[in-house]
Design a protein around this nucleic acid. Sequence first.
DNA 1: GGGATTTTGTGAATTATAGCACAAGGTTTC
DNA 2: GAAACCTTGTGCTATAATTCACAAAATCCC
Lengths: 218, 218
Amino acid sequence: MERPDAPPDVVIRRLPLYARSLRYLLEEGVHSVSSQELGERINVTAAQIRKDLSYFGEFGKQGIGYDVEKLLNHIDHILGLTHHWPLVVVGVGSLGQAIARYDGFQTQGLRIVGLFDSDPDKIGQMVDDLTIMDYSRLHAVISEHQARLAVIAVPATRAQEVADMLIEAGIRAILNYAPIILQTPDDVWVRYIDPVAVMHSLTYYLAREQGGAEVKRR
Amino acid sequence: MERPDAPPDVVIRRLPLYARSLRYLLEEGVHSVSSQELGERINVTAAQIRKDLSYFGEFGKQGIGYDVEKLLNHIDHILGLTHHWPLVVVGVGSLGQAIARYDGFQTQGLRIVGLFDSDPDKIGQMVDDLTIMDYSRLHAVISEHQARLAVIAVPATRAQEVADMLIEAGIRAILNYAPIILQTPDDVWVRYIDPVAVMHSLTYYLAREQGGAEVKRR
DNA sequence: GGGATTTTGTGAATTATAGCACAAGGTTTC
DNA sequence: GAAACCTTGTGCTATAATTCACAAAATCCC
Ligand SMILES: NC(=O)c1ccc[n+]([C@@H]2O[C@H](COP(=O)([O-])OP(=O)(O)OC[C@H]3O[C@@H](n4cnc5c(N)ncnc54)[C@H](O)[C@@H]3O)[C@@H](O)[C@H]2O)c1
Ligand SMILES: NC(=O)c1ccc[n+]([C@@H]2O[C@H](COP(=O)([O-])OP(=O)(O)OC[C@H]3O[C@@H](n4cnc5c(N)ncnc54)[C@H](O)[C@@H]3O)[C@@H](O)[C@H]2O)c1
């Protein structure tokens, strides 16, 4: 009775997009937006936005739309972005470095509290203001900062063992860049970023487009 | 009548995962695999794998399963991975460099034929064996190599104009790392990689897990 | 103040996706 | 060679996600 229906994961994955678009609108000095207008910016139907938001409450005004700042605050609350989330990055190769230097994390409610690598030559090096550390410090750093988020950016062959260690150390959600599916306990969340797989899904359509009439869907 | 049902995009997006898993199996020297076994490796149900493949033909043997190499070849054909696809990368900052250096593209049917940046200091620099080029060469390079794939790794504020230029130059599919939704013609495919949005969907669940019993879905 | 206009929130309808379950066909065992 | 076993491909069913469409506010305009 208390929670009639947990919002589906598809909805949760769209909320950050709404939030980001609202942030841009706020920067542009826009104070009010309709589901229609918001939808056009991010290629989502107005009905979908309204339905999604309705899982969490009523944030709009009929005839008017949504107050940009208020709606953004609501979504940030829903997503838990009222404070910064500590996270660790394992694997500081070229991708790990790009992630470490990326200010998009720091400015959006995420704070990297540890960089880890297994290469003795890398340990002790700095990336911006962070020192690359040895595994021996993993447990301590995660405990100290109460980190529950991690990014894996090691070679695919090492990703599973790294995941096991992270989970052992208290990590509960992982963003995995290594091109391999991780086996994890049910109470650990894993998401994947896999540009090659994305590219391969695109080559499918390009290969088919050569001559005929094509219809695009999503 | 000719094409009874175009395979849905969800299916197309799973095929590269099947292909990759089959590649790993091949490396491990495994010759035959059932939908059950394959599914366990990549957390997909056996029925789903069989259903997905059935859009394209019958590749298995009852009682046995699938010949790993044969199925891989079939999927590679379906995805158009029988030859290398030329692609250009625009924006060679820390992320663009990680992409340029990443051998995962080169070894998986993709070939970077051009790196472009607007920063005069960067133009002329080399990343591995590729030279960072000026926009003036964009059209020529895309035409010369018949590239139809592009990666955008410029700041969000520049991404739309870059996309417009790429499309103008003949690009038909874009992988966009910039955190902004692109407006493009209907015959251009766009996919997004957005680690911050992914992280924010994870903080949602972490924020909720604090004390209560939680149920995980997907 | 009232009629025209806008836009929300949401049940109901529709469409899309996933899973079940089983006949058919193949292998293994003895 | 026949019984036991395994696994595919798929029609059907079940579940999930999206879209429709409209009553209910809220505003605007004269
Ligand atoms: N570079 C990209 O654009 C890109 C894109 C998508 C995915 N990926 C994937 O991300 C991962 C990293 O890619 P990269 O290009 O940075 O590779 P890289 O080789 O440059 O870096 C890998 C790093 O991981 C470290 N490492 C290896 N084993 C480790 C272990 N057990 N524990 C901790 N650190 C370990 C290495 O010392 C190295 O610093 C790979 O799995 C790759 O497939 C890379
Ligand atoms: N670094 C990451 O891990 C990461 C992850 C996800 C997304 N992103 C996004 O990817 C993009 C690039 O990130 P980054 O960290 O490499 O940033 P960066 O600032 O290091 O690099 C951006 C590069 O784009 C170039 N550039 C700017 N305007 C351009 C234009 N009009 N045409 C061509 N080149 C142009 C700049 O000269 C620079 O070299 C950003 O949108 C960022 O939000 C980065």
